[in-house]
């Protein structure tokens, strides 16, 4: 487990989000440190995905601050920026209900992830000079390398829509990795996976953290996975943070148990 000495790379302070009269998030503070795996849990409708959407620029939070401090770069406030800018700054995500580019191949899906790290434009594409050629080659090479790491190199030329469910989830992770994030946000990565696939996912997420030095913030309902993976856990309910701490502390927290009452607590 990374020690608390590691610097904070994502610091969310007092985040709030209103939809009309509905307060979806209220004064949420969450932080993620370098090389840390953090889980965000809570009952359905607690505001977890809204939280992701606020951080990644899909929604503009009503109040609060989202501050990132990428390793080796200066801290900056990123709320209110467009999603593509946020991604370029090193936050990348997956979606709860898989959002792959269905009619593109597996490889092309990952190649899209390389978009913000490459630069050739229209004129380059038409003339296809040496710079464009070598960039294009690098895109293919890097994307393939990521697919190998994720274990999808067998199906590079398949259409994304023809992959089995579990592989589609992993392809989303591969695509997110291609944007070279320092923090990866996973929205229910194990949803719909069988126990075997979940085990592999556990291993994959650890490898991403250990080998690539990427921090991970995940939303997940599979408590076994959450307890085994996370260094720290944040719990939200009705848009508020109700608890935080190490897995052991969360397991016995009365507020958490109350929030989950009636739901399946297999931790």
């Amino acid at each position: 487990m990374p020690s608390l000495e590691h610097p904070v790379i994502l610091d969310v302070r007092g985040l709030g989000m209103n939809f009309g009269g509905l307060r979806a998030l209220d004064n949420v503070d969450i932080d993620v440190r370098e090389k840390e795996i953090v889980a965000l849990i809570g009952p359905n409708g607690a505001g977890k995905t809204t939280f992701f959407n606020c951080i990644t620029g899909l929604y503009e939070p009503t109040d609060g601050e989202v501050i990132i401090s990428p390793p080796g770069r200066k801290s900056e406030k990123i709320n209110g920026l467009k999603p593509n800018i946020v991604t370029a700054k090193g936050l990348s995500r997956t979606f709860q209900n898989i959002r792959l580019f269905q009619n593109m191949t597996v490889l092309e899906n990952v190649m899209i992830g390389r978009h913000c790290r490459t630069s050739s434009g229209i004129v380059g594409a038409i003339l296809k000079g040496p710079a464009t050629r070598s960039e294009e080659k690098a895109i293919v090479r890097d994307s393939y390398a990521i697919l190998e790491k994720i274990g999808l190199d067998e199906s590079v030329n398949e259409f994304a829509k023809n992959l089995p469910y579990g592989e589609q989830r992993r392809l989303e992770i591969a695509r997110a990795l291609a944007t070279e994030p320092f923090l990866l946000l996973l929205d229910e990565p194990a949803a719909g996976m069988n126990p075997q696939e979940t085990l592999e996912l556990d291993d994959l997420i650890r490898r991403i953290r250990d080998e690539e030095s990427i921090s991970i913030l995940l939303i997940e309902h599979d408590m076994k996975l959450v307890m085994s993976l996370s260094d720290r856990i944040f719990v939200v309910d009705y848009g508020r943070k109700i608890a935080q701490g190490a897995p052991g502390e969360i397991k016995n927290n009365p507020a958490v148990i109350k929030a989950y009452l009636g739901e399946d607590v297999d931790a």
């Binding site: 467009k82 593509n84 991604t87 990348s92 979606f95 269905q102 009619n103 593109m104 978009h115 944007t179």
Partner: peptide, 16 residues
């Protein structure tokens, strides 16, 4: 093509 397939995901993958 990514824009055609899914606007939200396209933006989230860093495309303007």
């Amino acid at each position: 093509i990514a824009l055609r397939e899914d606007e939200v995901a396209c933006q989230a993958m860093g495309i303007d």
